[in-house]
Design a binder for these strands. Structure first.
Lengths: 188, 188
DNA sequence: TTCAACAGAAACAGATCTGTTTCCTTATGT
DNA sequence: ACATAAGGAAACAGATCTGTTTCTGTTGAA
């Protein structure tokens, strides 16, 4: 039974490189060099590059949502405040030098087959993040928590892409302002 | 002096394949086979694959914005109606079987270098589309046309990504509903 | 008809990619 | 101390990629 540390380190390195350079553009050798792991060892843990991609996406899914939820919880005590904190947390994220957009959005751009595991994992990620927003929307007393969550999630997607493509540092605050309108409309 | 038709056909074919499969995953040979053009001829018009990518993005920039603006103009007579028509036009776009998200968003996901031509062209596209929305916002009598345009453009980005990644057919109408709120807030 | 330019087909070069295998070193447990 | 397993380094195979070149046919104009 192999120790998990090597496998995890490989996944962490892969996440970083896939985020920055994309999936097809990131060769196995580059990941291995960055991780300081031999090719032989990698192929013990992952039977192919595809499997490493899936593992990286699944790992990031958990880690990102966990960090995101924790940051939101820490940013505010009130339900309504937490809904808005989503965009404050996003703003910090966008300001990171290592911000290259959403790993899942970028992944779907490279893998267009409808039933591809990449798309399934990405869709699942967005679904799970939405569940969390739905729960916050319920706590905030929204008339239709699902609808409000749809709106806030769409705003977040828009902010991510605007920050990434248009290189707009105001993206998070633009989204936040609209979030105020959406929340008022939904809770009123 | 070469006839432009071959060059244009090559660009059109490249756009289709880059949209569906991405940039790194689309090899030259695949484009050439689909276009029915020889490699030799291609390298007369484009000195490298990179140049073909730039040409495809620049061509799509013009064609897409032109079609988009025409569709918006045709959908409504009033300024406010045109602002909302953005999302009706988007809905039709998302419903297309050949919808694979925004070519520029996908491109930026694959080319992360800050000063890359791909990023420059993509940023320029978003900027030009925003100029159009600003002009519509001015016509609609927005207090701050720039701010409203920022908001509506962010909603459009969010709708595109939500339709693409979450495979959500409601994406356009969710964005449209928020657009109503934003317009009311801005014109009030 | 003849000549020149064009363009397709295909071979080719060189690089890079994924994935396998071999060889050797280094730990670790008995 | 010795046997065994793990893992690095690197060669290797086979595929694929970009870009060049060569050869051949075809077309259009003088």
């Amino acid at each position: 039974m192999p120790r998990p540390s090597r496998r995890d380190h490989l996944i962490e390195t892969a996440i970083t490189l896939f985020c920055e350079h994309g999936y097809h553009a990131t060769g196995i050798d580059r990941i291995l060099a960055a991780a300081g792991v031999s090719k032989k060892t990698m192929y013990v843990y992952f039977r192919s590059k595809e499997e490493l991609i899936y593992a990286a996406l699944r790992q990031y899914d958990g880690v990102f949502r966990n960090n995101f939820m924790k940051a939101v919880e820490a940013a505010s005590d009130t339900p309504k405040g937490k809904l808005l904190a989503i965009f404050d947390v996003a703003e910090v994220w966008f300001g990171d030098n290592q911000f290259f957009g959403c790993m899942f959005i970028n992944a779907v751009g490279e893998y267009s087959e409808k039933d591809s595991p990449v798309r399934e994992i990405s869709k699942q990620f967005k679904k799970l993040l939405r569940y969390y927003v739905v729960s916050l929307a319920k706590e905030a007393g929204a008339d239709d928590a699902d609808e409000l969550a749809d709106e806030l999630c769409l705003l977040l997607e828009g902010a991510i892409v605007t920050a990434q493509v248009s290189d707009d540092t105001k993206a998070a605050s633009i989204a936040r302002k609209m979030a105020v309108l959406a929340i008022e409309d939904a809770v009123g």
